[in-house]
Design a protein around this nucleic acid. Structure first.
Length: 584
RNA sequence: CUGGGUGUAGCUCAGUCCGGCCAGAGCGCCUGCUUCGGGAGCAGGAGAUCGCAGGUUCGAAUCCUGCCACCCAGACCA
């Protein structure tokens, strides 16, 4: 189609909006794609909506191709469904709750597992009706504690969510793999650089799950990927390969050293002139209250001084839902010392130690006595009793678990990612709670085995910009650019306008979408706006080139301001079509 | 939720400490002239309940109290 700039609402602005901090937010605002109307709430202007629709259509095509069927569930939901699975309470403040005129509980949908499960349990009775894969593209609502990054993390956002229904685990796994393949095609087609990473599946359901992480320095998620094989994982979930044993040092006697006023590892390391890597960092955590521990259990987590405790792994290792860092008072009560002097030796409670800490020889750690540390500590000698468990976050340089298992030496590289998609097998978590069952071939009643698969459509708009931009503006991948060609006419002479119209018609006839900047503006203004809006190809027609029946073609990705080629007006349509892969 | 910050023209900001010219600038917008290949020049013009409510004062954008909104860091994120 052809859109004339003079008839469009494309309010580009020169100045950086005060509230925008990251590149995508700034450029989407400046380019006139979106406007904020509240915290985490945005208008999509015409250009922004076109990008959103392009992404939706790619997703739709690939979901349909994968055998999924599109449905549409309401955004406004009666509370009873979430109450049925307990998420009415579990979701807490993130749920946007509403009352109707009769005082009934309603909420805006943050996700739709319950509703789809209800849809299916009403209709599906037999194994003959399975497997089934249903998806929707719908607006979701989450009252995020802190929306940020423009449409990157909004409180209202567009999401594609799909749900698979199978007769057994094997079937669910097949559905899962089918979706993973579909997601690969989607992310490839969108022109995004991404990694499929192993993820923590969170509190609800699933052992098998993967995130599609769009790589970008501004991403909120830390991920590690092996430099030798294709293993990649969220640092929260990354397994860590065994390090080969280092050289043996003679074990020293454990001894107490006076370290007055030095609590922090960096300070003690400097004071004792010992590398932080030789420290055993001891942190105290409290588990949620349970029958055995009505006040919660205080446990010690030990890692090497330069490593970080991973609370998710720690909670998993302890078999509890979550853990919280102990308060100062708890620490003093549990260790009998000020904060900064905790250590495993002589600690009364349970101690978990990471393998990296356990293998330390002659380590330094707190003495559970204010102003004192211990040197020459060795777990291998039996200086203290601890469960050795992987409880730390992976970081750059750690050995890859897959490679290590094969005796190879792949190492992690660290990346930042934006979670663009998340797939996982839910099992029967929802179906058993909601009695979504079917009659199997043998006549028995079984819960349906489910999977769920999300893609943050509006987030991908921002992700694409994060990955494809320069100092002047956006550089849309062709598949999601709002238009293919940005036509700049210089001057408004009838001949120029006529030639431009002719070119537009020829392009449109080939299925090419054109934004024609027909404004009476100076060339500089038009070029700046073209760079900002970021369509993949720019065509320029001015009196000079027109005199030779020529126009200019320049790729947005070409950084050379004069990096254009001359085409005759007659050849231009087909030449451009060929560039776009839309030639005849 | 904790801590910090900001609300003045469509946008970006100055003015607020230390109350008193008429509430300012740049960009954008409108009119005219000139200009026309990387955000032009000149001249003229429109545009503001200074976030809201209350208070102090002869007088409040400025001081006090309360509220609201937005941003940033963290916590949080099926």
């Amino acid at each position: 189609m052809l859109q004339r700039f003079t008839q469009a609402l494309i309010p580009t602005v020169k100045e950086t909006p005060a509230e925008a901090t990251n590149a995508s937010h700034i450029l989407l605002m400046r380019g006139g794609f979106v406007r904020q109307i509240g915290a985490g709430i945005y208008n999509f202007l015409p250009l922004g909506l076109r990008v959103l629709r392009k992404i939706e259509n790619v997703v739709r095509q690939e979901m349909d191709r994968a055998g999924a069927q599109e449905v549409l569930m309401p955004a406004l939901l009666p509370g009873e469904y979430f109450k049925e699975t307990g998420r009415w309470d579990l979701y807490g403040d993130v749920l946007f709750r509403i009352r109707d005129r009769k005082g009934g509980d309603y909420h805006l949908g943050p996700t739709h597992e319950e509703i789809i499960t209800d849809m299916v349990r009403r209709e599906v009775k037999s194994y003959r009706q399975l497997p089934l894969n249903l998806y929707q593209i719908q607006t979701k609502f989450r009252d995020e504690p802190r929306p940020r990054g423009g449409i990157m993390r909004g409180r209202e956002f567009t999401m594609k969510d799909a749900y698979s229904f199978d007769v057994d685990e094997a079937g669910a796994l097949k559905s899962y793999e089918n979706m993973r393949d579909a997601y690969r095609r989607i992310f490839d087609r969108l022109g995004l650089t991404y990694r499929i990473v192993q993820a923590d599946s969170g509190a609800i359901g699933g052992k098998t799950s993967a995130e599609f992480q769009v790589l970008a320095d501004s991403g909120e998620d830390a991920i590690v990927a092996c430099d030798a094989c294709d293993y990649a994982a969220n640092v929260e979930a990354a397994e860590i390969g065994q390090t080969p044993p280092g050289p043996e040092f003679p074990k020293e006697e454990t001894r107490e050293v006076h370290t007055p006023g030095k609590g922090a590892i960096a300070d003690v390391a400097k004071f004792l002139k010992v590398n932080a890597k030789r420290f055993l960092k001891s942190l105290l955590y409290v588990t949620p209250a349970s029958d055995a521990h009505p006040q919660g259990e205080v446990v010690m987590a030990c890692v090497r001084g330069d490593h970080e405790v991973n609370e998710i792994k720690l909670a998993n290792a302890l078999g509890v839902r979550e853990v919280h860092l102990a308060t100062e008072a708890d620490i003093e009560r549990a260790t009998g010392a000020n904060v900064g002097y905790a250590g495993p030796i002589g600690f009364a409670g349970r101690v978990l130690v990471d393998p990296g800490g356990a293998e330390l020889t002659n380590a330094v750690t707190g003495a559970n006595k204010t102003d004192y540390h211990l040197m020459g500590v060795n777990l291998s000698r039996g200086d203290y009793k601890a469960d050795v468990k992987d409880i730390r976050s992976a970081s750059e340089g750690d050995p890859c678990p897959r490679c290590a298992a094969r005796g190879e030496s792949g190492k992690f590289k660290a990346y930042k990612g934006i979670e663009g998609g998340h797939i996982f097998i839910l099992g029967t978590h929802y179906s058993s709670k909601m009695r979504a069952t079917f009659l199997a071939q043998d006549g028995s009643e079984k819960p349906i085995v489910m999977g769920c698969y999300g893609i943050g459509i509006s987030r991908l708009v921002a992700s694409a910009v994060e990955q494809h931009h320069d100092a002047d503006g956006i550089q849309w991948p062709q598949a999601i650019a709002p238009y293919h060609v940005h036509l700049c006419t210089l001057g408004t002479e009838p001949e120029v306008m006529q030639a431009a119209k002719g070119l537009c018609d020829a392009l449109v006839e080939r299925g090419i979408d054109v934004l024609w900047d027909d404004r009476d503006e100076r060339p500089g203004v038009k070029f700046k706006d073209a760079d900002l809006v970021g369509l993949p190809w720019r065509v320029t027609i001015g009196a000079k080139t027109l005199a030779r029946s020529e126009c200019e073609l320049k790729a947005r990705s070409n950084r050379d301001p004069k990096g254009h080629e001359l085409l005759t007006l007659a050849d231009a349509p087909e030449a451009i079509a060929v560039k776009l892969g839309m030639g005849r």
